[in-house]
Design a protein around this nucleic acid. Structure first.
Length: 430
RNA sequence: GCGGGCGUCGCCAAGUGGUUAAGGCAGCGGCUUGUGGCGCCGCUAUUCGGGGGUUCGAAUCCCCUCGCUCGCCCCA
């Protein structure tokens, strides 16, 4: 390609798409507001060290997916690959944690250097929440419900909630040793990827997609068996809470997740509409992270959902149910009125009229082509507007404007050009 | 990072070695110099992602490259 183009995996969002995004974001914003979560915005660029310490040196995200570079002051900077580490850093730095628990949400672009695929870009967008200072099992339930209810409100169907408990760091350490010992006896039966992970990140072998490895794992010691009694009780309480809210879930003992900071409750919400990248929303508890990043030891839990994937699921839902809430969100907005105008006086009167109506909150498309009335009506029709406002020099002469309904047979009516209130009333009625 | 498929106008798409690269949608203009949704007519790719090669001749074959896509990996 000799023509200038965007970088691989970096996608332009055009008006038609953005209209849908904003509809989703508006629903999310309301939802968070009602639930007592305040918005936070942190820089896209952070010190590389933040992610190394936060996410974990051994993870794939840190090891091979970060956009890192040295700035002119020779500091190592990284485009954020996820939101949690930044939010925690900001909360610690701004002393938010000494003001009690913090319920925060964010949205914005994240960057991961990966091979693009369906539902996966190098710049992608997440909406997420972080509840800092939430320690009890009930907060796990509330946070999961927050995600579940948002998706339900958006009208996305066919989703599955999977949960697991990763226990305490001690639980995991003990289990890791047991698992490695067990698998080392069976090295020859493991696929090459899993063999490599045996030394780097053995727990991730659990959610390998290799069928032979999965079959082998049937016999392996399980994480659930390695949990301490306290961890087990905690997890049972989370499950009871979900059941009490009527949120159905599937226990997935192989759900591990790739970021080091997770412990106890981990969960994912998946869709069957997305191909290989099935996770729409993922999250979990990270009780150790805040202390690890230099803050006061504070339990916390959060999740993030992928905008691009959510929109894919939403479009599928709209397709399946053209009358449903998803379809309403996805449908493009048509203007309330399309202003047909032609002639010197009419064109300047048209501009003021459009302005006056817009100030009243109406969505008005002003034809600026100066072409024949017939052409303008054709465009008015295409715009999907319910009304055409007709303004020619004759109308201006008489101080009038005609209102013509575009999707019904009823008659044109004539209103005084100065009668903005009357026009607004008419335009809003059907 | 690894493997498979693909790349023709803004979008969908025919064409698979022979002198003019179909068609549809959208756009623009006209039939209709002040009234749309239908119809009809016309215009819109010296060029087939880019570069190189084979050939008398290439969108069609070969090589490289870029991009998209599906899967692995990873995860939202």
């Amino acid at each position: 390609m000799s023509q200038l183009q965007s970088l691989r995996g970096m996608v332009d969002l055009l008006p038609e798409t953005l209209q849908r995004w904003q509809a989703v974001e508006a629903v999310a914003r309301e939802h968070f507001l009602r639930s007592g979560f305040g918005e936070i915005r942190t820089p896209l660029l952070e010190s590389t060290d933040l992610f190394c310490r936060g996410i974990g040196e051994g993870t794939d995200v840190v090891g091979k997916e970060m956009y890192s570079f040295s700035d002119r002051g020779d500091r190592s900077c990284t485009l954020r690959p996820e939101g949690t580490a930044s939010v925690v850093r900001a909360a610690v730095q701004n002393g938010l944690l000494s003001q009690g628990t913090q319920k925060l949400w964010y949205s914005g672009p994240m960057f991961r250097y990966e091979r693009p695929q369906a539902g996966r870009q190098r710049q992608f967008h997440q909406i997420g929440v972080e509840w800092l200072g939430a320690g009890n099992a009930r907060s796990d339930v509330e946070v999961i419900a927050l995600a579940w209810d948002l998706l339900a409100q958006l009208g996305v169907g066919g989703l599955e909630l999977e949960i697991n408990s990763l226990g305490t760091p001690e639980d995991r350490q003990a289990y890791r040793e047991a698992l490695v010992a067990w698998l080392e006896q069976r090295m020859d039966q493991l696929d090459p990827d899993s063999q490599a992970r045996l030394t780097t990140n053995p727990l991730r072998i659990l959610d390998s997609k290799n069928p032979a490895t999965q079959a082998l794992l049937e016999q392996a010691p399980t994480l659930a068996d390695a949990l301490s009694p306290d961890s087990r009780h905690r997890f049972a309480a989370v499950q009871e809470g979900l059941t009490a809210l009527g949120i159905s879930y599937r226990l997935n003992p192989r759900l591990v997740r790739g970021l080091d900071y997770y412990g106890h409750t981990a969960f994912e919400i998946t869709s069957d509409q997305l191909g290989a990248q099935a996770t729409v929303c993922g999250g979990g508890r990270y009780d150790g992270l805040i202390g690890q990043l230099g803050g006061p030891a504070t339990p916390a839990i959060g999740w993030a959902l992928g905008m691009e994937r959510l929109l894919l699921v939403l479009e599928a839902a709209a397709q399946a149910d053209p009358q449903g809430p998803a379809a309403r969100l996805v449908r493009p907005q048509a203007p309330d009125a399309y202003l047909v105008n032609r002639g010197d006086r009419a064109e300047s009167a048209g501009l003021s009229l459009a302005r006056a109506l817009r100030q009243q909150g109406l969505m008005v498309e002003l034809d600026s082509s100066g072409s024949a009335f017939g052409k303008q009506f054709k465009r008015a029709d295409r715009s999907g507007a319910r009304w055409a406002l007709v303004l020619g020099d004759e109308e201006v002469e008489r101080g009038e404007v005609r209102l013509k309904p575009l999707n019904q047979q009823s008659e044109e009516s004539t209103v005084a050009l100065s009668g903005i209130a009357a026009m607004v009333e008419l335009l809003r009625s059907r």
